[in-house]
Design a binder for these strands. Structure first.
Length: 273
DNA sequence: GTCCATGTTCTTTA
DNA sequence: CTAAAGAACATGGA
């Protein structure tokens, strides 16, 4: 599924095209992707202008001109694509919206597995969203604070959206490798030097991934329907048994918290360095 | 048929 | 109480 870089790529494309535009039609093909199941979601957004499209964690947040907000989460297989209405929408297209834009295109939310969906937030901007800070602006002292509170493996801690927002399985593995930190090390036992390295590595990896328009393993597409390019330069993710691109040692794959976890036992020693 | 998948959340187990 | 493991959700590709 899309993680922060993929979601940011979509937002970067959609925002200049759709911000300040008016929604002229909306179709919710299946109600069960909407949380909470408000009575008339299309009726609540048609006729309004989009004030902004932004990213928060892995969420794509739409703010209307009347301060109502909703967000789309892409789950594992979700896509949010602008397409020519002449072209029939693919299977599993659950939501479509049109805007007062001159070039004929409509916004389509398509999600076969339906782990994603649309969440209606209403106009209360004060409510807590339950997510931790954004990794791209995180300071080492903040990261140290967050990690000091838990003995879980560092990989599990970084995947926890309530601790840090936006990281997923790919970029946690890539960041830990870039920082030279073993995924099983308890989060609270990282020393300050490791935390600074990790903080730097996360930002470096995320920025690089955004520059390459994200990673496409299978389902991810950007808002124009194009795959990302970053998957071709993953250094550990999905490279089990292949030589580490840094030292040549075979990449190891373990299962941690039910997720595939890839690391180089040589570059990422399990004992504190 | 099997296993696996970019996520989240709930339940079970220890 | 905490935390880790496991299962569930649903679809499709290899």
């Amino acid at each position: 599924m899309p993680e922060l870089p993929e979601v940011q790529t979509i937002v970067n494309t959609l925002s200049p095209l759709l911000a300040k535009r008016r929604i002229i039609s909306a179709t919710l093909a299946r109600r069960d992707i909407l949380t909470p199941p408000i009575a008339d979601f299309p009726g609540s957004i048609v006729g309004r202008r989009l004030a902004s499209i932004t990213r928060r964690g892995k969420r794509i947040v739409f703010t209307l001109d009347n301060a109502n907000r909703f967000y789309i989460h892409l789950g594992m297989s979700g896509r949010l694509v602008l397409a020519d209405p002449i072209v029939p929408p693919p299977r599993h297209t659950h939501f479509v919206a049109r805007f007062d834009i001159t070039n004929a295109c409509e916004l389509r939310f398509t999600d076969p597995r339906r782990f994603g969906g649309i969440w209606w937030l209403g106009d209360d901007a004060t409510q807590e969203d339950g997510m931790g800070p954004e990794p791209l602006t995180l300071r080492p002292v903040q990261l140290e604070r967050l990690l000091s509170r838990t003995a879980r493996p560092i990989k599990s801690a970084l995947l926890d959206q309530s601790l840090i927002a936006g990281l997923g399985n790919i970029y946690v593995d890539e960041s830990l490798h870039a920082a030279g930190i073993h995924p099983l090390i308890p989060a609270h036992s990282l020393n300050m030097d490791q935390i600074r390295r990790l903080n730097r590595a996360i930002k470096l990896i995320l920025r690089r991934a955004i520059r390459h328009r994200g990673s496409t393993l299978r389902d991810y597409r950007d808002a124009a329907g194009q795959p990302g390019n970053y998957q071709s330069i993953h250094r550990v993710y999905a490279r089990a048994a292949l030589p580490c691109l840094t030292c040549g040692h075979p990449i190891e794959r373990i299962v941690l918290g039910g997720r595939s976890t890839h690391f180089c036992p040589n570059c990422q020693p399990s004992a504190a360095s």
